[in-house]
Amino acid sequence: MTINVKHSLVVAFPLIAALAFSIYIVQHQIAGYKGIEKKIEEFVTLPKGEYLKPAVFGYDQLVADIIWLRAIQVIGDKVVTPKGYEWVYHAMDVVTTLDPKFAYAYQFGGVTLSELGNRPDMSNMLLEKGLKENPEVWQIPFYLGFNNFFHLHNYEKAAKYMSIASELPGHPEYLPKLASRLYVQAGNPDIALEFLINMYKETDDEKVKESLEKRIKEVIIERDAIYLERGVAKYKEVYKDSPENLQDLVRMGIIKDIPPEPFGGYYYFDQSTNKVYSSVIRDRMHVYGK
């Protein structure tokens, strides 16, 4: 048997191609195994930032970037379990310990934990750490204000954070006005709406945007419901009787028309509770009504 240069190539090429294809298939399978839940679980194995820092030989930022890339991927992928969000917090905490000036990590972590994970407590912890390390970034107190307003209903604190944000360089124009209005009329759905719409503008994460959009519609429902309930009250005052339905208000000229329900449903008046509801979202937010 003669093994020469040409033979080796002729034999090797198809073999290499076949093997490369198999590698592709197998790697694809492995990627399936490593799926989303497993990826989040990996954050468990991440040591605390304080322990990691000495072990990365000064490549703090680089390691932070790598963990960051992993984390945002996991969060962006699929449904994350409640436990998963604790690991997301852990990952973000490690990233920001390694690279404390990585302001976007606080923002991203903050908004993800509160808006998607429904964990404003962890969100606030991360953001407050961020505020200490990056006192010049207006988004961080802005998000803190948001958390306090919407999730913790601590309007005073919310207003305080917003005024901090509105004094920082680069803040958007509407911020000072929003902050001052928060102080005086914290329970007004219009303010909430304004806040939410601005928050929506500040975010570029699709999932968070989706969540905010839903929240905006809910606040619109709340605002419309309050408006319609005022109409009902006026109807009662004038006619000394409860209206049959909301159309009565329009017919009697008390309101010009019934606003459209943002989810595409309709509003109705429930005589038994004396309240207005959306056909889509049955629960009312009890926060803003006064």
């Binding site: 020469n4 080796s8 090797a12 073999l15 290499i16 093997l19 490369a20 590698i23 197998v26 492995i30």
Partner: peptide, 20 residues
Amino acid sequence: LYGLLYISVVLLLSGVIFQR
């Protein structure tokens, strides 16, 4: 399996390079 496939490719390439 992934490891073995990868090794086969790398060794094959080494063989081809080495042969030439």
